[in-house]
Simulated assay, not measured.
Amino acid sequence: MTVTVVVADDQELVRSGFGMILDAETDIEVVAEAADGAEAVTAVRRHGAQIALLDVRMPGMDGIEACRAITAAPGCRVVMLTTFDTDEYVYAALRAGASGFLLKDVRREDLVHAVRVVAAGDSLLAPSVARRLVQEYASRPVRRPVAEAARLAALTARERETLLHLARGRSNAEIAAALTLSEHTVKTHVGNVLAKLGLRDRIQAVICAYETGLVVVGGAPEPPGTPDG
């Protein structure tokens, strides 16, 4: 099945370059290019695109606002692009619903891989962006609102362990090795975590783990309890 993509960047050479890279793949089709967020939102809706590749900083409607508008309705997932891994908008973009975040100096093969991964329903963060997310929480006072922490009550002990590993950025294969489980079982646990907590993908799971206090930056994680499956 062909993955349809809208590429948005206010620099024509940048967006056309990314477009050419993606269009060269037999399973990916760039259906439109956009110079700002508003054009991107319109293009996604007009073409029913599955992926929107958005620059964070664009004139008028920026990538954050466009991401929020696009992800408000099902059907299209967002991969954000930025020039610097210290971009202050990283956290805002993830909260707006982005499923992937890459630097603009991303290698050709990594860009294509990111589009395929996100189109398949998973999420992807460049390692430096993941560090930025942790730094965002490290700069905040430790908090654990009762309402947030109570969300975890629906999880089994094993599902809480799985969430801990997700928060550390581990893949299903790595989680399976750590918990001595099959990848199929881990995939089931991940799916249960997302469903029970009302989360869209692994990135939201990472954010949830920090916001609920399950993981504390600079401290030991909350004991996961006795595994029960």
Rank of each mutant, 00 (worst) to 15 (best):
E12T: 05
A35M: 06
I64C: 09
T185L: 13
G225K: 02
V142C: 07
L152E: 09
E136M: 02
C208V: 09
A138I: 00
A130I: 00
A92D: 15
E29V: 04
T188G: 10
A92R: 13
D87N: 14
A24T: 04
T86Q: 14
D36A: 08
A149S: 14
M20L: 13
E25L: 00
P141A: 09
C208E: 15
V146H: 11
P141F: 03
V56E: 05
L181N: 07
L214S: 02
V118C: 07
L111E: 05
P59M: 03
N172R: 12
E29F: 00
V215E: 10
E33W: 00
E148A: 14
E33Y: 12
A153Y: 07
R77S: 14
R160W: 04
S99F: 00
E211I: 01
L103E: 08
K196G: 03
K196F: 02
A49F: 03
T188C: 06
R160M: 09
I207A: 12
A43P: 05
A96H: 09
A8N: 10
R168E: 15
D105P: 00
G37S: 09
E136D: 10
V90P: 04
T4C: 06
A92N: 11
D105L: 00
T180M: 04
A126P: 02
H189Y: 12
M20E: 15
L179A: 05
G191F: 01
I28Q: 06
L111D: 02
A130K: 12
M61Y: 08
A69Y: 08
R143L: 10
V206H: 08
E65A: 15
G17L: 07
Y91E: 15
V41A: 09
T4I: 01
G63K: 03
R200F: 03
K196T: 01
A40N: 09
G121N: 10
A147L: 10
T86D: 15
R132W: 03
G37L: 04
A69C: 13
A195S: 08
V14H: 03
R158D: 14
T212W: 05
A178D: 08
L179W: 03
A126E: 14
A195M: 04
V90M: 10
V118L: 06
F18W: 03
P227Y: 01
I51A: 05
T185V: 11
Y89W: 11
A167S: 13
A38I: 04
V3M: 04
